[in-house]
Design a protein around this nucleic acid. Structure first.
Lengths: 335, 335
DNA sequence: AGCTGCGTTTACAACGTTGTAGGTAAACGT
DNA sequence: ACGTTTACCTACAACGTTGTAAACGCAGCT
C-alpha cells in the first residue's frame, strides 16, 4: 500500500493538515517544519492520492478533448497541440473519439456528465444545430472548429470561409479559371464543407469568374480515399479544369494521386491547394500548397479560454477566430 | 450541485446502500425496489461520482498509454487501436507523450506514480536497459514494441527482426541484390533499428548475398525528413542499389520522394519496402509495400494482458509476439 | 499583568461512494 | 412449532484528502 498523509505526518511529528499545507504550498509554515515534512515525504516516497484529492476538492485536473478521429492526421496533430497547451496549465487530457455512430456518440456525451473532467473541448466536425443542444455538460465547454451562429459556449473557430476564399484566390492569382471545388457535402451550409464552399464561391464572384455547379464535387467523408474516388469520377466524366481547391489536405493528396495516375501534371496542367497544413503536405510529391488554419494557436487559445471558465469567469460566450495563412508550395507553383 | 446517492435514496425511500446495490447490479434486490430506485435515478438524472467511487474502490477505470509522439502516424494509429481495445473493457485511456527530453520524461514517469491510472501500457521507442529499471510504477505494466531480454514486465512485441527479414526476403525474391538498409541507428543493438538491421543481415546471409556496410544508412529519427535526407546523401555519394529496405514507412515515403525527384523509377529502377503499414502507404504514389506488424492485434493483446494483471493475475512476465505479414504493393511490384 | 494580533499549527468534519456486518421477515426443513 | 436458511435491506465505517474554525505561543502594546 502507498503511504498516506498520515504516515508522513507521523514520521515528521506534525499533524496531517500540516502535511497537506506543505504539499499545497501554504505560505505560513515555519521553515524548519516545512523541511521536516519534505524530508518525511522524500523518505516515504509519498505521492498524494489523486482520487481523494479529486473527491475533496471537486476538481480532477483533467479536461476532455472530444474529436472525431485520431487516425485523421489533422486531428492527431490537433490533439498533440491541445495536450501541449494543457500541460502548460498542469492539466491532463482525456481524448474521446466520436466514431460517427449515433449510439456511441450519445454515450460519449453522457460520459462527459460523469464529472471525470473539469472542462471539455469539443472539436466538432459536422455538428448541426439540434445536436448543439445535446451538449449539456455540467462543466465549462469550449467548441473548436466550425462556426455556429450564436453558439451556447465559447468557440475558437477556424476561418473556414475566409481560408477557402484565400485558397481560391491563390489559384485565381496564378491565372487558373476552371477551379474544381473538392469535398462539398450535399446541402450543408454551416459545417466546414458548407463554409469552405461559401468561401470558394465568394472568391470566384469577387474575381468575376462564373460559378459552374459541374465543378463542385461532393464526397462522403474527408479521407484520402474519398478525394481519390471523387477525382476518379470527375476525370471519368470528362470535366475540364486547371485548378483544384480541396477542402482538406487528405482529399487533396488522394486527388493528386489520381491526377498523376491519369497523366496530368501538377502544377503545370492542374494546380492544387489543400486545407489544414498537416505535416504530410511538406513531403508529398509534389509538395502541397495549403491553408494553415493556425492549429497550434487554436489549441492554445481553446485551453486558455477553458481554464478561464474553469476558474469561474462568467461572461457572454466569446467567439475567437484564429489567424490563418496561405502556404504556397510546389503544387501551385507558377511555371 | 449534482444529485448524490443520498438524494436518490430519499426520493426512492430506501437506504443509500440499496441505491449503490442497484447501480452495481447486485443480484438480491426485489424487482419493485429496483424499479423504484431506477425511476428516482432517472428523475434526478443521477450520475455516480467518479472521484468518490475511485477513492472508495481504489480503481480509476483508466489506463495510461505512454508513447513517444502522437504526430507520428504509427503511434496515432496505435493510440487509436489501444483506445478501442480499452473501450471494450470499459476503460479510459490517458495518453502521455514522451517528448524525448530527459527532464520531461522523468516527470512523466513520476506522474505515473500518482495512481491516476490502474495500469500502464508503455510503448517504448528507444529504451535502453538502464532506463528499464526507472519504470518503477505501483501498477501493472505492459511493455509494447521492441523486445527487451528478460524484461521485468509483460511484453507484447513487434517481430522486428523477423519482419525486417521478411521484408528483405521479399526484395531478394524479386531479384534485387543491392539492398539499401535505410534507418539504422549508430551502434544500436536492442532497439527497433538494431533488430531490424539484424533481420536485414540475416536475410542477406540466408540468401548468400554479401553484406556491404556502404549500403547501411544511419539516420537520427524516423521521420519523413530523415528518410529524404539520408536518401539524398546516398544518391549524392553515388552508391548503386536496386532495392531499399526502409525501417519504417515514414522513412520509406521520404526516401521515395527523393528517388523519384532524382529521376529513378519505383519499382523499375529501385524497389522499396517500408515497415508499419500506416494508412498512408495505401495512398502514396506508388503505393508502398510494407510490413504489417499486427498493430491492432498488439493493442488488443496488450490491453487483455494488462486487464489480467489488474485483476490480480500473478505469474512470471510473459512475452507475446504479434503475428506480422508482408503487404505487397506497387513499390515492389515485378515488371 | 492583560489584551490584541499575528504566525503557525491542529482537531474535526466533510466530499460521495462501497465493504462489512448485521438485522428482519419470509421460506424451508425436521 | 422451532431452528435454519434465504432473500432483501440497512447502519456504520472507511477510503485520503482539504476547508473551517479554533487553538496555541509569542510579540508588542497598553
Amino acid at each position: 500500500m502507498s503511504p498516506t498523509m498520515h504516515d508522513v505526518a507521523r514520521l515528521a511529528g506534525v499533524s496531517i493538515k500540516t502535511v497537506s499545507n506543505v504539499v499545497n504550498d501554504y505560505p505560513h509554515i515555519r521553515e524548519s517544519t516545512r523541511e521536516r515534512v519534505r524530508a518525511a515525504i522524500a523518505e516515504l516516497d509519498y505521492v498524494p492520492n489523486k482520487a481523494a484529492r479529486n473527491l475533496r476538492s471537486g476538481r480532477s485536473g483533467a479536461i476532455s478533448l472530444v474529436m472525431p478521429d485520431l487516425r485523421n492526421p489533422y486531428f492527431a496533430e490537433l490533439a498533440d497541440d491541445v495536450m501541449r497547451a494543457a500541460a502548460e496549465h498542469g492539466l491532463t487530457v482525456l481524448i474521446e473519439q466520436l466514431t460517427g455512430e449515433r449510439e456511441q456518440e450519445l454515450q460519449t456525451l453522457h460520459g462527459l456528465r460523469q464529472r471525470a473532467a473539469d472542462g471539455v473541448i469539443y472539436s466538432v466536425l459536422n455538428l448541426d444545430l439540434e445536436d448543439a443542444d445535446q451538449i449539456d455538460v455540467p462543466v465549462p465547454l469550449v467548441l473548436l472548429g466550425d462556426r455556429i451562429f450564436h453558439g451556447p459556449a465559447d468557440h475558437v473557430t477556424i476561418q473556414n470561409a475566409e481560408g477557402a476564399k484565400a485558397a481560391t484566390e491563390h489559384l485565381l492569382e496564378r491565372g487558373r479559371r476552371r477551379l474544381l471545388a473538392l469535398g462539398a457535402h450535399e446541402g450543408e451550409v454551416l459545417g466546414s464543407a458548407g463554409l469552405r464552399l461559401h468561401g470558394y464561391r465568394e472568391a470566384l464572384e469577387a474575381a468575376g469568374v462564373p460559378f459552374d455547379p459541374d465543378l463542385v464535387t461532393h464526397v462522403g467523408r474527408w479521407h484520402r480515399v474519398d478525394g481519390a474516388e471523387a477525382m476518379r469520377e470527375v476525370v471519368a466524366r470528362g470535366v475540364t479544369f486547371d485548378g483544384v481547391v480541396a477542402f482538406n489536405d487528405s482529399l487533396a493528396l488522394g486527388a493528386m494521386r489520381v491526377l498523376l495516375d491519369a497523366g496530368l501534371r501538377v502544377p503545370e496542367d492542374v494546380a492544387i491547394i489543400g486545407f489544414d497544413d498537416v505535416d504530410e503536405t511538406r513531403y508529398s510529391q509534389p509538395t502541397l500548397s495549403t491553408i494553415d488554419p493556425g492549429r497550434a494557436e487554436i489549441a492554445r487559445r481553446a485551453v486558455e479560454v477553458l481554464v478561464e471558465r474553469m476558474n469561474g469567469l462568467a461572461s457572454p460566450p466569446r467567439e475567437i477566430a484564429a489567424p490563418f495563412s496561405v502556404v504556397a508550395r510546389e503544387s501551385t507553383a507558377t511555371g
